[in-house]
Design a protein around this nucleic acid. Structure first.
Length: 441
RNA sequence: GGCCCGUUCGUCUAUCGGUUAGGACGUCAGGUUUUCAACCUGAAAAGAGGGGUUCGACUCCCCUACGGGCUGCCA
């Protein structure tokens, strides 16, 4: 049984980077009929906010990434204390007393001497008396996990064989002086307890994986299989983290991006499979294959969402557009005809507003100076609305007979005069919807 | 500074030593269309640099450059 999880910390909303992680884990569970857990990693009491937890849930619901189970780390504090006690007994936890400032100083010294800034395990040498003395000085202990200094190896689902020397990594701090359990530990306990079988996360967690494998094994568990997807960069290759604020899911949604456009792109970007618009998550899951993803950082350009959004919106049946059409004031009886005319000329659902405004209010005629006389004459031949399906051809034929113009020089000035634009829906189909033509006459 | 990963058309990528280096999206041109969109046809477009190994290297090895990540009592 496959068990995956998406484990955001509720310190912000879902953005384009998180979304990829959530989607991959969802798809793996979905594809194999497994379980997808939403786990809120909220051990950081200061930064975690209920508002964000709710926001994350709403965003996942909008995307359609339904979870089978929800967990909160703040509900599991007793369990972490229990496993911490177990690891102390096993000699894998040791208490340290350096202050953050002291640690910072140590790192700087090491760096200056050209050495890697790895914790020197000074606290490991402390005996009971020394520890008592530290406490007497008012210092509060925090706890590190004693790494077994060997190479840690695993076969990554995306990166392939990875080997990291534990000696190049500091013993991770797992419990702070104020008792707060840190991510690396809570996550390891949870993944073990919840039977998580596959973890897909960003490449920023590769080093964590090395230590978490040891932590899970020290607790008597078996490490799940890991896969680390490349991180997204901006279109110019710059780190995306700086721009994440403008790429939150809610912003993209507010701009009119369609969820299937977003999901279709994210399920394929960075893989060798072509990006294709899919109709639903089942279709996306069907073709999803982690092994098709590359390890190189992936450039993400939000502009790529628009062609997919347009294709999705243009294929929508009128029923799916009912709310949007009603919102801009399209009468229900005109909706099907209007949507048929407008659909080929919209990218976002909201774009129908401008076309309906044209139909309802008419447009300021756009007349090139050399066409002024021609348009004046043409408008004399145009009866007032309402128009029928043959109005356009009747009018253009009449104008053609009266002026001798034909082809593009005939049609284009008329289009511009009637709609105020040089592009737009098919004129023959548009005419019957026009309720006003202000420039007429 | 140390550690991990990476570098093929504009973009995402294929190629498990021998290919006219393939596909998709985008771009451009032609066709169709009153326009836009859509559709059809076609085109341009790539192996970071330097050393090896080999009959032969995009592919294997080393170095350099560049990009990303980690190097927190954040996640």
């Amino acid at each position: 049984m496959t068990v995956t999880r998406f484990a955001p910390s509720p310190t912000g909303y879902i953005h384009i980077g998180n979304l990829r992680t959530a989607l991959f884990n969802y798809l793996i569970a979905r594809k194999t009929g497994g379980t997808f857990i939403l786990r809120l990693d909220d051990t950081d009491r200061e930064r975690s906010k209920e508002e964000y937890a709710d926001g994350i849930k709403r965003d996942l619901e909008w995307l359609g990434l339904h979870w089978d189970r929800v967990e909160r780390q703040s509900d599991r504090l007793d369990r972490y204390a229990e496993m911490a006690q177990f690891l102390r007994g096993a000699g894998r936890f040791y208490e340290c007393f350096e202050t953050p400032t002291e640690l910072d100083l140590k790192r700087k010294k090491q760096l200056n001497m050209g050495k890697p800034p790895v914790y020197d395990r000074a606290a490991l040498a402390l005996d009971d008396d020394a520890r008592a003395k530290m406490r007497a000085e008012g210092r509060e202990g925090y706890w590190r996990f004693l790494l077994d200094q060997q190479r840690i190896e695993w076969t990554d689902g995306i990166l392939g064989p990875i080997s990291i020397d534990a000696a190049s990594v500091s013993d991770p701090v797992l419990i702070r002086a104020d008792g707060q359990v840190l991510y690396t530990f809570a996550s390891s306990v949870d993944d073990m307890d919840m039977g998580v079988t596959h973890i897909v996360r960003g490449a920023d967690h590769v080093t964590n994986t090395a230590t978490q494998i040891q932590i899970i094994e020290a607790m008597g568990g078996t490490a799940p299989s890991f896969a680390h997807h490349s991180l997204l960069t901006g279109a110019q290759g710059e780190a995306l983290s700086k721009r994440l604020g403008t790429l939150s899911l809610r912003d993209l949604r507010a701009q009119g991006v369609e969820r299937m456009a977003l999901l279709s792109l994210m399920a394929r970007l960075g893989s060798s499979q072509p990006v294709e618009l899919r109709a639903d998550l089942d279709e996306i899951a069907e073709g999803f294959d982690l092994s098709q993803f590359g390890a190189a950082p992936t450039k993400f350009d939000a502009e790529d969402l628009w062609p997919l959004t347009r294709a999705h919106v243009q294929a929508l049946p009128v029923e799916a557009m009912a709310d949007e059409l009603a919102a801009v004031g399209v009468p229900a009886d005109l909706a099907p005809a209007f949507w048929d005319v407008a659909r080929a000329n919209v990218t976002r659902r909201g774009d129908v507003a401008q076309w309906w405004a044209l139909c309802r209010d008419g447009a300021e005629p756009l007349v090139d100076s050399e066409d002024a006389g021609f348009i004046a004459e043409a408008f004399k031949l145009l009866p007032p609305p309402p128009y029928g399906p043959t109005s356009w051809s009747e009018w253009t034929n009449a104008v053609k007979a009266a002026t001798g113009r034909k082809g593009k020089t005939l049609f284009m000035p008329l289009r511009k005069a009637v709609t105020g634009m040089d592009h737009g829906p098919d004129m023959a189909a548009l005419m019957p919807l026009l309720q006003k033509v202000p420039g007429r006459g």
